[in-house]
Amino acid sequence: MHIFSQLFQYEHPWSHVVIGMWRKYPNPKCTHVVSVDVIDRSVDPETGIIRTERILGCKQKAPRWVVKLFGGSEDAFVREVCFVDPATQDANITSVNLSLSQFATCYEVVRYTPAGPHRTNFSQTAEVQARTRLWQTAANGLEKWLVQRFEQNAQLGKTAFTDVLRALWEERHGHLQAAAA
């Protein structure tokens, strides 16, 4: 598992940061995010917490070996769930990749909390984890297939060479017998 984390402060009050949060894209510095869709949104009547579920569409060239190995494409989608709590001034955003998620997951948590009246703390952590159990299943399957293939080829090779030897020596014997006659 690989972990990434960073802390930062924005020179803006918390409310300005969370209002700006919905206007982050499109952004000339993050051109890989091409679409943002709200697929679910609700306000908890008791706590007042707004929950927003979004799908972000990204276009980013993956390394060739990734595309070859996993059949990925330029289009990648991310699911994001965001909680904004105006009472405690807390915003929490969790994102997980939807594309290639059968092979690996990138679980990112971002949090905005006030740092005084004019500044906002930003914390970001991400865990990248390959689904090793699935890899193991895939690796076992590959091994099995390779063994079967090898056995088949070995069987074919054996009979093929038997044919060659039979043909060669039967022919020679034939000649010898013909010459002796």
Partner: peptide, 9 residues
């Protein structure tokens, strides 16, 4: 604002 994944939306 960012566009939708489907242009019609």
């Amino acid at each position: 604002m960012a566009s939708s994944l489907s242009p019609e939306c």
